[in-house]
């Protein structure tokens, strides 16, 4: 039985100019790409534009796609560059001081906080308050389930930096949680 066509073959078709193959790739990967960008730029409209541009870039540069990386990784890499470039244009700071301040303003004794929100919601709130680079590495590892090497390829950084960036992000998350009244006992 012939199975569904794989991403590599679709990329080959895109490189040959088949917009139908691009459409299939779009259907397959757009939700993840959109979410990845949205988590960085935090704006639906901007994320929608950038996500579409990722697939336009994929069309334009399909011939440079190499099968040694997954199409997912390749698309995420384009998405990362697009999102970071957009952030720079908007001159957003890596650390969102306003949101961090808001979170700290809500800091109250642990029992009060825990009455207001269950731990999972607070955890998500703290993750969203992290600098975009921290959120990005957490997303790549936990949601997009990339390996160390794949995350390094997407971010164009050494594998060792992936590990330290992830570690730092998790430590910062613990610090935010602690300020909000939840001590995880780590680090």
């Amino acid at each position: 039985m012939t199975g569904p066509v794989g991403d590599d073959e679709l990329m080959a078709r895109v490189a040959a100019g088949d917009s139908g193959a691009l459409e299939i790739l779009y259907a397959r990967h757009h939700p993840r790409i959109f979410r990845f960008i949205k988590r960085i730029v935090r704006d639906d409209g901007v994320a929608e534009e950038l996500a579409n541009e990722v697939f336009v870039d994929a069309w334009r540069h399909a011939k440079s796609y190499e099968r040694r990386s997954l199409a997912t990784t390749w698309l995420l890499s384009i998405a990362h560059n697009r999102a970071v470039s957009a952030l720079r244009k908007r001159r957003e700071e890596a650390w969102n001081e306003d949101e961090a301040a808001d979170l700290q303003d809500e800091s109250e004794p642990a029992d009060v906080v825990m009455q207001k929100a269950e731990k999972g919601r607070l955890l998500r709130q703290c993750i969203d308050a992290l600098p975009f680079a921290d959120r990005e590495i957490l997303d790549l590892v936990y949601y997009h389930e990339l390996s160390v090497g794949e995350a390094a390829a997407v971010l164009d950084i050494p594998e060792g930096t992936v590990k330290t960036r992830l570690f730092t992000a998790r430590k910062r998350l613990s610090e935010l949680l602690k300020k909000a009244g939840v001590d995880r006992g780590w680090p």
């Binding site: 959109f34 979410r35 949205k38 988590r39 731990k119 999972g120 955890l123 998500r124 993750i127 969203d128 957490l138 997303d139 936990y142 949601y143 998790r170 998350l173």
Partner: peptide
């Protein structure tokens, strides 16, 4: 807990 929170945050979009 971290993994579930990150997945939930993404899938809420």
């Amino acid at each position: 807990e971290e993994k579930y929170a990150v997945v939930d945050s993404n899938e809420a979009i």
